[in-house]
Computed example of a mutant assay.
Amino acid sequence: MASLYLLLLGILLLPFLLLLVLAFLAWPAPVKLQLKGRHVLISGGSSGIGLAMARQAASEGAHVSILARNPAKLEAAREAIRQATGSDVSILSVDVQDFDSVSKAIQDASPIDVLVANHGVYFSQELELQDLQEIKLQVEINLMGTFHLIKAALPGMKQNAKNTNFPASIAIMSSQSGQVGIYGYGAYSATKYALRGLAEALRHEVVLDNIYVSLIFPPGTETPGFAEEKKRRSELINMIAASSGCMKADEVAEKAFNGIKCGTFIIPCNFEGVMLAIATAGLYPQNSCLGAFVEVIGAGFMRFVGLCFQWKWFGIIEKYHAKRNGS
C-alpha cells in the first residue's frame, strides 16, 4: 500500500517537476514592452492587418510610421488613423523589393523600436497552372522583401536598444499557411514557411542585443486583399479553404501586439492557430514555461488531430475529382 501511495505521489508531482525544468529551459524571460512613446514602423501599413496594427499602435501613444508602395493609399491610411486616434503618422512610399530604397527610407525614419514586417501578396492556384511570374513575385515580396526590411533596420535597432536600454522588437507576419501547406497555396506557403527559418535564426542572433523576435500566424483575415484573392480561387480551393476560420483585421492586430509586448516568439491568433502552434512547435524558442508545458503535454494529441485534418482534406480532394470525373 505504501508503494502505491508513493507511486501516486510521484505521478501527481511529475507535472510540477516538469514545470520546474521548463522554467529553467524557457529563455529569455518574458518582457514588458510598451508602445507609448516608442517608434513603431509597419510595412504593408496602408490597408488590412497593417493598417489595423498602425491604428492600434497610434491609439496606445506610439509614434507610427507606415510603409507601402502606393502613395495615395498611404495618404488615405494616414487620414483614417488621424480620424480614429487623433494622432498623425509618418508615411514611407517604398517598394520592399528595392533594397536601396528600403535602406534609405529606414535610415530617414530611424531610430526604430518596433519593426513589423507585415507586407505580403498571395495568389491561390494549383502549381501546375500558376504563372511563374506570380510565384517569383510572392518570393520577392514576401520573403526577400522581409530580408530587405530587417537587414536595413537591424543596425540602427541594435544601436538604439543599446542607447536607450529599452527592449526592441522585430515582428514578422507569417500565416497559418506557413504552419501547414494547403491545396492551391504552394508558392505562398513556401514563402511563409521560409519566414519561420528566418525568425528562428534571427532570434538567436539578436537575443543579447535586447531585441525580441515574434512570428505571427493569422488565419484568413477580412482584408481588401483577401476579398480579391477569393474571387480567383478554384472550386476545390474554396472547398478546402472553407474548413478554416476567418478573423477581422482588428482582432489580428490586437492578438499580434499582445504577443509582441510580451516578447512572445510564436503568436497564434485563434484557437485553430493555437492547435497548429502546438502541433508544429518543433525546435522553435519558447520563453514561457507554461507555454512550453502545454506544448510538451499536447504534442502527441495534436499530432493525432493533425492527421484527422489531413484525412479530411484528402477526402475533399478525392470526392471533388470523383464528382468531376463522373465516377
Rank of each mutant, 00 (worst) to 15 (best):
L9S: 11
L9F: 13
L12E: 02
L18T: 08
L35M: 14
K36W: 01
H39S: 11
G45N: 05
I49D: 00
L51R: 11
A54Y: 00
A54C: 10
A62I: 11
H63V: 15
V64T: 02
S65N: 04
E75G: 05
R78L: 08
A80H: 07
R82F: 13
S87T: 04
D88V: 10
D88Q: 14
V89C: 03
S90R: 15
S90L: 13
Q97P: 01
D98G: 10
F99C: 07
S103W: 03
A105Y: 05
I106P: 05
I106D: 02
V114R: 04
G120F: 05
V121S: 05
Q125P: 04
Q130T: 13
L132I: 14
I135N: 06
N142W: 07
N142H: 10
K151M: 11
K162E: 15
N163E: 13
I170K: 00
I172M: 03
I172F: 02
S174R: 02
V180D: 08
G181P: 04
A190K: 00
A194I: 11
L195H: 05
L195V: 09
G197I: 06
E200P: 00
V207A: 10
L208I: 03
V213Q: 00
L215D: 01
L215E: 01
G220Y: 10
A242K: 14
G245M: 03
G245C: 04
A253G: 11
A256Q: 01
F257C: 09
C262Y: 03
G263D: 03
V274P: 00
T280M: 10
L283V: 10
N287T: 12
S288G: 10
V296S: 03
I297T: 10
G298P: 06
F301C: 09
C308H: 07
Y320M: 06
A322Q: 13
R324A: 13
S327G: 08
